[in-house]
Design a binder for these strands. Sequence first.
DNA 1: TATGAATGAGTGTTCATTCAT
DNA 2: TATGAATGAACACTCATTCAT
Lengths: 240, 240, 240, 240
Amino acid sequence: MPSHSENYTSSHQDVGRREGDSSITRASDPLPRTGEWPHRGDRELGKKGRNTRSRLLESAVDVFERRGYHTTRVDDIVKVANASHGTFYIYFTNKEDVFRALISDAAREIDRVAQSLGPLQPGTGTFEGLRSWIGDLATTYQRFAPVIRAWTEGAADDPEIRSSGIAMTKSIITVVEERFRSSTVGSKTSLEPRYAAIAVVAMIERCFYYQLRSRKDEIAGEMLDTLAAIIDRGIYGSAE
Amino acid sequence: MPSHSENYTSSHQDVGRREGDSSITRASDPLPRTGEWPHRGDRELGKKGRNTRSRLLESAVDVFERRGYHTTRVDDIVKVANASHGTFYIYFTNKEDVFRALISDAAREIDRVAQSLGPLQPGTGTFEGLRSWIGDLATTYQRFAPVIRAWTEGAADDPEIRSSGIAMTKSIITVVEERFRSSTVGSKTSLEPRYAAIAVVAMIERCFYYQLRSRKDEIAGEMLDTLAAIIDRGIYGSAE
Amino acid sequence: MPSHSENYTSSHQDVGRREGDSSITRASDPLPRTGEWPHRGDRELGKKGRNTRSRLLESAVDVFERRGYHTTRVDDIVKVANASHGTFYIYFTNKEDVFRALISDAAREIDRVAQSLGPLQPGTGTFEGLRSWIGDLATTYQRFAPVIRAWTEGAADDPEIRSSGIAMTKSIITVVEERFRSSTVGSKTSLEPRYAAIAVVAMIERCFYYQLRSRKDEIAGEMLDTLAAIIDRGIYGSAE
Amino acid sequence: MPSHSENYTSSHQDVGRREGDSSITRASDPLPRTGEWPHRGDRELGKKGRNTRSRLLESAVDVFERRGYHTTRVDDIVKVANASHGTFYIYFTNKEDVFRALISDAAREIDRVAQSLGPLQPGTGTFEGLRSWIGDLATTYQRFAPVIRAWTEGAADDPEIRSSGIAMTKSIITVVEERFRSSTVGSKTSLEPRYAAIAVVAMIERCFYYQLRSRKDEIAGEMLDTLAAIIDRGIYGSAE
DNA sequence: TATGAATGAGTGTTCATTCAT
DNA sequence: TATGAATGAACACTCATTCAT
């Protein structure tokens, strides 16, 4: 649910495809030029290696949260992980690479939860359905909070990361749009489902972000209630 | 309307009140103007100097838009402005300083427009009032689009700039909250005005941002209609 | 006259085309991504800048000679030039770039001298003509000795530099080949002019290199006499 | 036949004489074998060990050829050999060490062939003798081509390897010089045998190198004919 | 007021080598 | 005998900032 958008009217989904961890580089050429060697993916890692890699990932989360993506230095991460500078480069090619590894998990999960929004028909417990979905989203969002925040705020100038953020948001918007269409919403009201979906996703995403930034341990229940209520009334036209 | 928040439940407003110039050293000031010392403010500048300063500011807008705040180098700005490296430091202390100079105008304007939201009573043309206000906000937002985008996306790890963004958002939320309170909204519905205001501002801000990122020349009218309609129904309970 | 060859049977000449100094990078895009900015060419340099650049070039020659191309560190060069690390990167993008600047002069000169070989007809003072030409070549070679040695020995794995070396050698071979063809050499003897030219250039180049490596101040006159004599007898068939 | 020279006028021969193994610490030894200590030589190796060692050597040849000496990383070699990083250091102390192991064979062979040049007397089939000798040299040269090329091009800044190259070339020059002296060449012509020998060896070595770099499968027969003819006429004064 | 050369601290990245298993 | 994880010194390169002219 990071906050980048290139064209929110396109509806094809391109997030959540990738398999496994985000090690994008893969070995095949037996003798590449300098700098083209893939860094170790997960597969060939021994116990110790896996442990080190995890420690680095955890440290990265930690540091990204405290310093923000841009301000973070590889040096900070290895210091927290009690590893040497060189060790970092065994597992990741650079800062972006760790970041990709982190967001791939988050993206997968959020997308999964986003897709879980059931069909809703006006007058049939729409509030409860929305409230439950938003609650699930909030839970997931909180789980990956540091990463998502960095994703939203900081990584905006790495093209690949940005586009994955865009894709993720598009994907959620599309789900919501389809639910709006398949309910009788469109006919009852003058709302265009696409724009309504954009507005709703925007609202949810940004409220979560505001709340996260407030350093509360969790997103307030009242906030979630309010979101569900506004959507229920604003889109599904439920009264009171 | 940038997107940073520390605590959105606090309601005291601290943006847009202070008049005149403020010094850089007053760290609590949410929207400091360009530092007066040791660099020159506008007043004491000769014609040539004013011109150079403007050129630098315009170039900065240009570059921030194309490269993003973090990626922008002082070098880029002076090159676009056809100025020398040294010249930059005559007018600004550093990159943040230019940025502050740029956002101060934007912040003032947006805040002014935000405050213009009139009192709304259910059943008395709430949609039109909201639509008009949102339209004005959109116009202003578009006018300062490059700066605001940079503000939203990039400046997140400069504490001073971040806090000015937080303050700005808080200020708008507070206005909206007060309008909600002073109408009979609270009593009719179960919505807590503070949370409702947060949700509404979040939605508006993020939709504008999405639309801007889509590279459309302007924010779609349908988008504005949809926003107004959702708020009208979701908060003011208007039907149809 | 460096020593790389890809295909010595091709005869088209592609050395000596470049104008001015070897600053291959040129400015045009007003806002390139990081790393694409051209480094200052010679044109826009003030007096001081030109001086610094020269000092760096001289130091580079010095260090390349003492340490060899690969072993040389940018740090070594700036130390000798009494400049700071950053200064180096104002004038050159990296070690290769300085090297290119250095060899372009050498290549131009050597090529010019190589082309000066006049037409020779058996029985008409061929020895004197050859001896004089070889002498000129030797003089030029000596003048650029440190650079050429580095070129021959070390830079072999930089593709661009290597190919310029190849081109240079090809060019000389072609000149010699044409002189052999236009004299009656081919008809009198069974020598194929192309192969004969390769052999002759190989011999000259390598003898110069051997002599340079021996750390003598200059290439021995007897060496030059011997070369001229061997070619005179071996190719032109002069007796005694 | 690599291409380094410190002083090509000295004529005492110091390559190819010593038998058996030599220690790394004897710096003056021109062609040290792989260090026996603390790494294992061939003798004490089990079947498996011998196999691993061979694989590493073969891989090294492969990689040196494709990447050049300097650009080659230990990492590349072990990857091609399907061995682990640590294994490499069981058999060799470092990259130079593998290289020394590789060139020792090549050097021995080339030197042996070089010494095989028989005594030649003008007017007694000198061309055939030369042509045959050059052909043998070419065959050997081709056999060890990748190693020799790396030796010629790249190893120039390792003192020990360089000096072994110098010694090798000196040795060949000396053989040739002696043949020139023992024939009546010196008296008939004005050529100084030492310089003539240098020129001849330079020519042969460099032509081989040129041809190798041209990526032909083998050195052209015409090239060998031409070399023999030039020497025959240029040194031995044979006509037509 | 403008210039642009110089600086150097700060970061990123590579790779030979060691060592516990 | 083999492994592959870890290390850290060595080097490359960038860019904000200063300053003499």
